[in-house]
């Protein structure tokens, strides 16, 4: 376990009487691409929110690179290198894509950077825009981008925050299939540069193509932790995903 980047132990979370997560345990090793799967309402997004510090866990610990992050604020966790994207990224109306990318690097952007020029960063941002096929929209207000472009932009923003690990919340939702293929390549390259990835996703093809490992959740608990190719032979996973279909067939 010494090479684990993110260790989740016994994490629980309730909203009022609704227990969303109960005793979730798993860890992610450095350099892995892990898919986080499960039916709607199984607690994936809540887990992502706990990991990134949107709200604190009721119980259990979250450790990132050996540092206990339980109860830490979102910005603290992000500064330590654990950065996330959002399922429905909301972008500023009165900032262009280029401005947003410039501003996204929080490290060294504090009050001390007041008199620093940033021409040297132009090359990095140009490269990112090229890679994500966003060069032609760089002068547009970020909020005016399409849903798919916002997804791509949010990956670029996460990269600007010098991450060690990125948690992606449904990166392909609303993205054109051609672009989806492009995104697989992009995420592989990001991973090859040493960044660990945790991907919440519904698209099985995407997961199979990209991930080395899958964590499957159902009703707030981890029910499987295996290779993507083993998913279909796991009875619990099949039950969680197809249970409803079977019941319907039985009732018919």
């Amino acid at each position: 376990m010494s090479d684990s980047v993110l260790a989740i132990e016994g994490v629980a979370k309730s909203f009022g009487a609704n227990q969303v997560l109960a005793n979730v345990c798993f860890s992610i090793r450095k350099g892995e691409i892990v898919g986080l799967l499960g039916p709607n309402g199984c607690g994936k997004s809540t887990l992502l929110n706990l990991i990134s510090g949107v709200f604190p866990a009721d119980a259990g610990t979250l450790a990132f690179q050996g540092e206990n992050m339980t109860g830490q604020s979102m910005d603290h966790i992000a500064r330590r290198g654990l950065v996330r994207t959002f399922q429905l990224p909301s972008m500023p109306r009165r900032m262009t894509v280029a401005e947003l990318l410039h501003g996204a690097a929080a490290r060294g952007a504090g009050f001390g950077s007041l008199f620093r020029r940033d021409a040297s960063e132009m090359a990095e941002i140009d490269g990112l825009l090229d890679e994500l096929a966003l060069s032609h929209v760089r002068y547009l207000p970020a909020a005016s981008l399409s849903g798919g472009q916002k997804k791509l932009l949010s990956i670029a923003l996460a990269l600007r925050a010098s991450p060690r690990m990125i948690c992606l919340d449904e990166p392909t939702a609303g993205v054109h299939p051609n672009l989806r293929h492009h995104m697989v390549g992009l995420l592989r390259r990001i991973n090859a540069s040493g960044i660990t990835l945790l991907i919440v996703e519904h698209d099985m093809h995407f997961i199979r193509e990209l991930c080395s490992r899958c964590v499957v959740m159902d009703r707030g608990a981890v029910i499987a932790d295996c290779k993507p190719s083993e998913l279909t032979s796991n009875e619990q996973v099949v039950e969680a995903y197809l249970g409803n279909a079977r019941q319907k067939r039985a009732m018919a």
Binding site: M74, D75, V83, P92, M95, L100, G103
Partner: peptide
């Protein structure tokens, strides 16, 4: 400058700003 950009991100999308650190 850069400081102004970070303030603008905070102004328009506080959660995004926090998620970037």
């Amino acid at each position: 400058g850069r400081y102004g950009l970070s303030i603008k991100i905070m102004r328009e999308e506080p959660q995004l700003a926090a998620s970037l650190g």
